[in-house]
Design a protein around this nucleic acid. Structure first.
Lengths: 109, 109
DNA sequence: ATATATAACTATAGAAAGTGAAGTAGTTAC
DNA sequence: GTAACTACTTCACTTTCTATAGTTATATAT
């Protein structure tokens, strides 16, 4: 199987903007965070909200965010399975970025 | 020649975050804006600063930003040519997003 | 006179990333 | 015994992006 790289690959480790971009600069990441800001969500809820994302991509982004310590995953060993994703305290520090984006986006056009 | 789509394609026009993401959600856009926040820049300056971007991508992103009215382009008809890119007033409204990213990025890891 | 240098791109080929549909797994309800 | 349910994974294919090689028009060096 082809691997989806975890990060953005633009890794100027000295620039904080570049470091943030490495994590939230992907096509879907900010939208995933936006959804998680209103509370924990199941995989299927995220998939429904993010119309157009492929399951492969959603899983990859969530994995990346978990690996970066920004999102926590809870698996309930039920059948059918249930998984919940939630922002960690570190992940909640992205909120000002999303808020600034919302402000900018609302003034567009 | 293959076309690079201007926008991100995730166009939930009702969500301001998605609208912002459509513009600044690309791999390089926030870094271009970051560079332009410190004043007008030539194409070659941007290319040098954004190590790893292809000339095609840089031109495409700058075109997109100009088309969205966030960046203004000035061409000096000299030889060799000289082009300058500058944030418009609308473009300067992205600054809070970059600032929030910098804040978040500086606290990572 | 010819060759070279220069900046800002554009063209092309190939690598990488992303999509959509189908499959997997394990139990429970019918 | 078959269908349903969720959270993925796999595969084939399309789209995007990178790296490298032009292109253009003049000025300067040889």
């Amino acid at each position: 199987m082809k691997k989806i790289s975890d990060f953005n690959g633009v890794c100027d480790t000295d620039c904080p903007v570049a470091r943030a971009n490495d994590i939230i600069g992907g096509k879907w990441t900010t939208l995933i965070i936006r959804d998680l800001l209103s509370g924990k969500k199941r995989y299927s809820e995220l998939a429904r909200s993010l119309a157009g994302i492929s399951p492969r991509m959603l899983a990859a982004r969530l994995d990346m965010l978990c690996g970066a310590g920004l999102v926590a995953k809870t698996v309930y060993p039920t059948v059918p399975p249930k998984t919940e994703y939630e922002l960690t305290d570190a992940g909640k520090r992205i909120e000002p970025v999303i808020a600034a984006m919302a402000e900018f986006g609302s003034k567009l056009r």
